[in-house]
Simulated scan of single mutants.
Amino acid sequence: MTERIFCFGDSNTWGYAPGDLMTPRYPRETRWPGVLARLSGREVIEAGLCGRTAAFDDPDMPGRNGARALPRALEEAGTPDYAVIMLGTNDCKRVYGATAEEIGQGLSLCLDILAGVILPSRILVVSPPYLGENVWRPDRDPAFSPESVALSRELKTVYRAIAAKRGHLFLAASDAVRAEAWDEEHLDPAGHLRLGEAINAALFGGEGQTALKPGAGANAGSDLPGRSQAE
């Protein structure tokens, strides 16, 4: 029986393509869950939703609370063999006024639910890509603030500690990709490719990596030399 991977996240898991009014979602083969499916040879269940938080209720968009939505999503998915969770970007919005530790508490609520049906060692916690320095500008996403940018960089350390304490796998998306799209919030197609490669490597040691163009993931990521860091 083919193993199944459950991917739970926000717009970067859903595959939002900023600026494209005709096709606002990247094709399946472009989105990182599709890349993961191709590389790993496993069935991938996509459970991404634009605007989703780890555990906050969005005052303008109902149904975005990840901890509330996760039990239903898991029920619909059946019993997956692995899980990948990447949330936290939307929790950095100014409306919540949250700290990185509070966002981590919300993530932990989701992990409690996942660990009820999936082995802890088969759950991959992914800290999201850093927000760009100008993401908060009116022509981009004013739901964020300059403080949101700094907050997004704190999640890596908090999430790593949570994963280690709970016995989960961990990957910092910022080690592999940056929010290259014009809005400084979402991944472009090349970013989806690199993130799919990195997640496959984190889960399975990179098995099947040659299925993609050699070197496609090289020299990319917000933690590479030449990129300013704040952790």
Rank of each mutant, 00 (worst) to 15 (best):
R38C: 02
D20T: 15
T99M: 00
L70V: 10
G15Y: 03
D57F: 13
P128L: 03
G97E: 13
L131Y: 01
M22C: 09
G19Q: 11
T157K: 05
A100H: 09
C50W: 06
V44F: 03
I113N: 01
D20Q: 14
A115V: 08
Y82M: 08
P146C: 07
I123P: 04
T157F: 05
G78D: 05
E101N: 02
P120R: 10
R31M: 06
P71E: 04
D139W: 09
E102F: 00
R137L: 15
Y96E: 05
P80W: 06
P71D: 05
V125W: 10
A54I: 02
S108C: 07
I113S: 13
G19N: 03
R38H: 12
L111E: 02
G41M: 13
R160F: 01
R42G: 11
R153W: 00
N134M: 03
L131R: 00
C92M: 00
P120K: 09
P71Q: 07
L131P: 00
S121P: 11
S121G: 11
L70C: 14
P129M: 14
E101G: 04
A98T: 04
I103V: 09
L36W: 04
L119S: 15
S40P: 04
Y82H: 11
V35T: 08
R25D: 07
P138Q: 09
V125K: 07
P18S: 12
A73K: 14
E43Q: 15
E43H: 14
D60G: 11
G48E: 11
V135P: 00
M61P: 00
A37D: 05
A150V: 07
V125Q: 04
N134F: 14
S152T: 10
C110G: 07
P18Y: 11
V158R: 15
P146M: 03
L49R: 06
A98L: 05
E29I: 03
V125Y: 12
D91C: 03
Y130V: 12
A73M: 09
Y16A: 01
P142M: 15
A17M: 07
E101Q: 05
L70R: 08
L109H: 13
V95W: 13
F144K: 09
V44R: 12
P24D: 05
S152D: 05
V149K: 13
A55I: 03
S40M: 02
A161T: 10
G132T: 11
G132F: 12
L74Y: 05
G106Q: 01
E102Y: 10
D57R: 13
V158I: 05
Y16C: 12
G15N: 14
A100M: 03
P62T: 13
S127P: 01
C110E: 11
D58H: 15
R42D: 14
Y96A: 01
W32P: 06
E147W: 08
Y96K: 03
L151R: 01
L36M: 07
T157E: 09
I118D: 10
V126E: 07
A17T: 08
G66V: 08
E147T: 09
C110I: 00
G19K: 15
Y96P: 10
V95R: 14
G116H: 12
W14A: 13
P120I: 06
G66F: 00
D91V: 02
L39Y: 14
G34R: 06
L119I: 06
